[in-house]
Simulated assay, not measured.
Amino acid sequence: MDATARQAALKKLDVLVGDWVVEAEFAGLPPSVGRCVFEWTLDGQFLLQRTQAPQPAPDSLAIVAVDPETGEYTYHYYDARGVVRLYSMTFADGTWRLLRETPDFSPLPFRQRFTGRFSEDGDTIHGVWDRSKDDSAAWEKDIVFTYRRGY
């Protein structure tokens, strides 16, 4: 991947930059609210996400990088429990996707995926985390997140 293609891939992520309110719906619990900030770091080469998570989720930090082999992205996740995970990430046509199906820095007791869809004005992302206990199991809805720009 050349520098022009890398910069074009990074530019697509500009829509995430800024402050967001995060509303979460966990099964059996009342909705909760947290905050999230996306900002460029290291001369704009990486996108940093800092989240004060809605309870009971842990606070977290993620770093988005362009994958030089595919032109897609990697999403490096770290949280207050000490969990470290690596997700593949795609970002196209108003849809943000994360996927983790293989062990990485931590064991893989379940597969995870996130699908977030942007509103037409770009100020809301409605997303769902799904999980699957093993390769043969169906995906089950885990958590619903709604990101709203500004806080």
Rank of each mutant, 00 (worst) to 15 (best):
D121M: 08
I125N: 05
S106P: 00
G44N: 04
K11H: 14
T74Y: 08
R111E: 06
L108G: 11
A8S: 12
P109W: 12
G34A: 04
G94Q: 02
H76C: 08
E120S: 14
T115D: 04
V22D: 00
D104A: 14
E39L: 01
A62K: 00
G127V: 02
A27C: 07
T70N: 12
E140G: 05
D121E: 01
T102Q: 14
A9F: 12
S32R: 01
Q49D: 04
S32F: 11
I143H: 02
F91H: 09
Q49S: 02
V21E: 15
D43N: 12
M1S: 15
T124W: 10
Y151F: 14
V37D: 06
K12A: 15
P58Q: 03
D121V: 01
L42W: 13
F105A: 13
D135A: 11
E140R: 07
D134C: 05
D59N: 07
G116T: 02
G18T: 03
K12V: 13
V64D: 06
V84I: 12
W96T: 04
W20S: 00
K133M: 15
R35L: 10
G34D: 02
W139R: 10
P30W: 15
R149C: 10
S60W: 05
V15P: 10
K133Q: 15
E23P: 09
A3H: 11
G44S: 04
R111D: 12
V66Q: 01
R111N: 14
P68Q: 11
A9V: 04
A57S: 05
P31A: 10
A57V: 06
Y73P: 01
K11M: 11
A9R: 02
D134K: 10
P58I: 00
F38C: 08
W129G: 00
Q52I: 02
H76Q: 08
A27L: 04
A62C: 10
P54N: 02
K141P: 15
R50T: 03
A53Y: 06
A138H: 14
T146I: 06
K141I: 13
Q45L: 13
Q49W: 12
A9Y: 08
A8D: 07
P103I: 07
Y75C: 00
R85H: 10
G18N: 00
V22L: 02
T74N: 14
R81G: 05
Q52Y: 07
